[in-house]
Design a protein around this nucleic acid. Structure first.
Lengths: 149, 149
DNA sequence: AGGTCGTCAGTATATTTATACAGTTTATAC
DNA sequence: GTATAAACTGTATAAATATACTGACGACCT
């Protein structure tokens, strides 16, 4: 296992799992049979510029570098302008319709952005369903998404 | 000194000074005659969702929450579209020209965004001069700025 | 072969950060 | 007023993170 590969993996992990502390990374890697220590993770985090963000649930979680988020934000903006059709809320659900074939990409971006209002997200061909934490979150989320257009 | 005020101050400090660790906050507040301990700062940071970002210089610095940066990025984008006139580099300097009266606002935004390429920044009425770390940074910085248009 | 340089990672530890607990103040109800 | 609860902070310490130091490994020489 080379450093480069590990870095790749860390980026992936930080996006798909909730990493609260560096030991979580160590554990995840151990699960995959990769031996590393917290010290190495600390150095990796420094190189990758991952950040520990205080989360809305009172905990903490590691995240991609803020700069990357610019990119995500930009991509989201571009995609929304290109493929957005409509958005609607119903209780804690937000339904976003896109031009056919674009929903999956949009869903991925939304997932990566990890909005705090969001609880989960499924996407089909022209529809993204976002499940928020509650009704209020759903409205806030809708406003956010609209602001990208 | 109420918590609210302190939070305001922390936001200001984190933007205008380089805060490497929580003790730096404590020191800055002491300088202003405000008594606080690291524990309080830790809790404040959690509430304000400030993040400790690995910096390009090998150190660390605290920053505004990534979400806020979206805003800054958006504002920058809007202002650039509205007021941008031209941009040019010369060695490690980048000169941005804007419509009269807009340079100061643009400079402030650029300062807030704290681009790693940037060393310093002065703004007049229709001109922002950005001093980068070196020639390469200057070019990278120019590309970045252009991408906002 | 041996020698030198550079990268990388572990161990041990220093440094930094988070928090349990307790005390104080401030708001709210009675 | 007094009682009770909630918000806030410091102290002490636990927990988490960063790093000095060291050794291992490989690349590239002579």
């Amino acid at each position: 296992m080379k450093k480069k590969e590990r870095h790749q993996l860390l980026r992936k992990l930080v996006q798909q799992d909730v990493i609260r502390k560096q030991e979580d990374f160590v554990d995840k890697l151990h699960e995959r049979g990769i031996e590393v220590t917290q010290a190495t993770i600390s150095r990796d985090i420094k190189e990758l510029q991952l950040v520990k963000v205080p989360a809305q649930d009172g905990g903490y979680r590691y995240n991609l570098p803020p700069e990357m988020n610019y990119d995500i934000s930009k991509k989201l903006s571009r995609l929304m302008r290109d493929a957005f059709v409509s958005i609607d809320t119903q209780r804690e659900f937000v339904l976003i319709r896109t031009l056919p074939g674009n929903a999956f990409a949009l869903g991925s971006l939304i997932e990566t952005a990890k909005y705090s209002e969001m609880f989960g997200c499924v996407s089909g061909d022209d529809t993204v369903l976002v499940i928020c934490r509650d009704e209020e979150s759903a409205e806030r989320f809708q406003r956010r998404i609209i602001s990208f257009i």
